[in-house]
Design a protein around this nucleic acid. Structure first.
Length: 516
RNA sequence: GGCGCUAUGGUGUAAUUGGUUAACAUGCAGCCCUCUCAAGGCUGAGAGUACGGGUUCGAUCCCCGUUAGCGCUACCA
């Protein structure tokens, strides 16, 4: 009896896949940009593969012809590349396997595990599908109708074959056992049970011949030899249906690990329509996040390390990562749509800043280079004869930066002679004291003969200068900061002098008088 | 409506699986440092663990109920 084998299925801790090389996949559907939730799923799969010495694969689930776009596919691959999640084999495009999926469904009819359903397709109004389903379920329940009752299930083979041969359209449905229940051990959520009475005979093939999601996933996972399915928790209850298909196909069932979801601040599902660009991975790249930092931030949603360290390199992460410490409750991505400072999760911002200011210079250099290149400020000598200066300057300014964008924004005055003056800074530091009109050029004059032009030398010279003119060091330092960088805030002025250099410092001190 | 999953400061997460003044990070406030702003150091506010019942000498942890959120319930993925 088929139902008996189903009911008895309960995977032991060590199963068929335990001794095989781990093979996991990331299976996005290309219907938009790469969502941060999907990115995290990809990351967890990747980490698990690297951790276990297994393979990380990608399968593009492009079976929804209407919604899938090439542009989306491209952005998904770009996103994976940006994050550094390199896959091990050629990506699989699910649409290419439709024939195999259809054949599998037909095979199931042949051996009696599935049947043709000649009932005409139910049409659902656009956008009302969820409502329709809930309503139908409610109505059936109220009227005592068994939603599983389907006259076609018990059609004789002869009649079924005849009607099919006559050209009558049919969908293919899996025969779900009438009695018993489905069980599996989720690696995150633990023992899962679902009564077969809760599962309708699911459609494998549409009447137009197109295979449906559950069939396609299972077939492809079998074809790709997937050992562990790591995906969002929204598939937790679907898993029972998929296991039914595995059993019908008489293949081994992989292990499952479902991940908690990442929610919006109001605990609603994170969606582009409602939440905009915060959910798109490309936003983070475009706003100056370091992929290493974003990975670090992302991994903390739904997983936590055994110890309390939260900042780690990719290699440390691979070493530390495990399925055991994945959380079961959904996480909320904390941001505000009204406060620009809180445009995205604050902790993610902190982690990015932490990386910007502490990452080894050599690792950061390529990112800064491409940032400066994007605004036309990169010069090859920064990697050559002026490398020491460049490194010292970067180390000086990155201390108070949050993103890569700051190198071309706040940091512009270090790499360009044309830079904007912050109006508030000019008002506060330059216009405040009339004497600066004479003092700034005087300081420039003093600097012109100063040798060497270093942090210590400029400090000594300036302190002496201030004493001589009976003016507070702070007044001159702040005025100089605005004159040299256009800003009210920044690094210690003596370091700034040294970095900007004598020529540029003198010129900027003199030019600033026009602003006073 | 049915079924399933989840519930610890604002947010992300800990709590050796029943014994802690409920911990860490972020964010917030203050102080120190100081030429500004960060960083850093120090201090502080912020949860009695969704709510209500049990079990127990003792529950964040186990059980039941309620509530809320999420998911599934499709010839979507």
């Amino acid at each position: 009896m088929v139902s008996k084998t189903f009911s008895d299925h309960c995977p032991p801790t060590t199963d068929h896949f335990t001794f095989m090389t781990v093979r996991v996949r990331f299976a996005p559907s290309p219907t938009g940009y790469l969502h941060i939730g999907a990115a995290r799923t990809a990351l967890f799969n990747f980490l698990f593969a690297r951790k276990t010495g297994g393979k990380f694969l990608v399968r593009v689930e492009d079976t929804d012809l209407a919604r899938s776009t090439e542009e989306s596919t491209r952005s998904i691959f770009e996103g994976l590349e940006w994050l550094g999640l390199n896959f091990d084999e050629e990506p699989v495009f699910q649409s290419a396997n439709a024939t195999a999926h259809r054949d599998a469904a037909l095979r199931l009819i042949a051996n009696g595990k599935a049947y043709r359903d000649f009932t005409p397709k139910e049409e659902h109004a656009e956008g009302k599908v969820k409502q329709d389903i809930a309503e139908r379920a409610r109505r059936d329940h109220a009227e005592g109708i068994d939603h599983r009752a389907n006259a076609c299930r018990d059609l004789t083979t002869e009649e079924s074959d005849r009607r099919a041969a006559d050209g009558e359209p049919f969908a293919v449905r899996l025969k779900v056992p009438v009695n018993g229940s489905s069980h599996f051990e989720d690696m995150v959520y633990g023992e899962q049970t679902r009564d077969y009475s809760e599962i309708e005979d699911l459609v494998l093939l549409r009447s137009d011949g197109h295979p449906l999601y559950n069939l396609s996933v299972v077939c492809d996972d079998i074809a790709m030899n997937i050992t562990h399915v790591i995906r969002g928790q929204d598939h937790l209850t679907n898993t029972h249906k998929q296991i039914l298909i595995y059993k019908a196909l008489e293949t081994n069932v992989p292990r499952f690990a479902h991940l908690p979801l990442i929610l919006a601040p109001n605990k609603a599902k994170l969606s582009k329509r409602k939440h905009g660009e915060v959910v798109s991975l490309t936003t983070y790249r475009d706003r100056g996040f370091l992929p290493e930092a974003f990975v670090n931030a992302l991994v903390l949603f739904g997983w936590s390390p055994p110890d309390e360290h939260e900042i780690f390199t990719f290699d440390e992460l691979i070493k530390q990562f495990d399925l055991e410490h994945i959380h079961r409750s959904n996480a909320v991505f904390n941001f505000s749509e009204t406060d620009a400072r809180l445009w995205t999760d604050q902790k993610a911002q902190f982690i990015n800043a932490e990386y910007v200011r502490t990452m080894p210079f050599e690792n950061l250099l390529p990112y800064i280079q491409s940032e400066l290149e994007s605004v036309g400020l990169w010069r090859d000598e920064y990697a050559g004869e002026r490398r020491a200066w460049f490194e010292a300057t970067v180390n000086l300014i990155r201390e108070r930066f949050y993103t890569l964008k700051d190198f071309s924004g706040q940091g512009r005055a270090y790499f360009a002679d044309d830079f904007p003056f912050d109006a508030a800074a000019v008002k506060k530091n330059l216009k405040k004291d009339e004497r600066l009109r004479e003092l700034l050029p005087a300081l420039a004059e003093k600097f012109s003969s100063l040798e060497p032009f270093t942090h210590d030398a400029t400090e000594a010279a300036m302190r002496e200068f201030c004493e001589h003119h009976a003016v507070k060091v702070g007044v001159i330092a702040n005025a100089a900061r605005t004159a040299l960088t256009g800003q009210a805030v920044g690094a210690s002025m003596f370091h700034v002098f040294e970095s900007i250099g004598r020529e540029r410092a003198i010129k900027r001190l003199r030019d600033a008088t026009s602003l006073i």
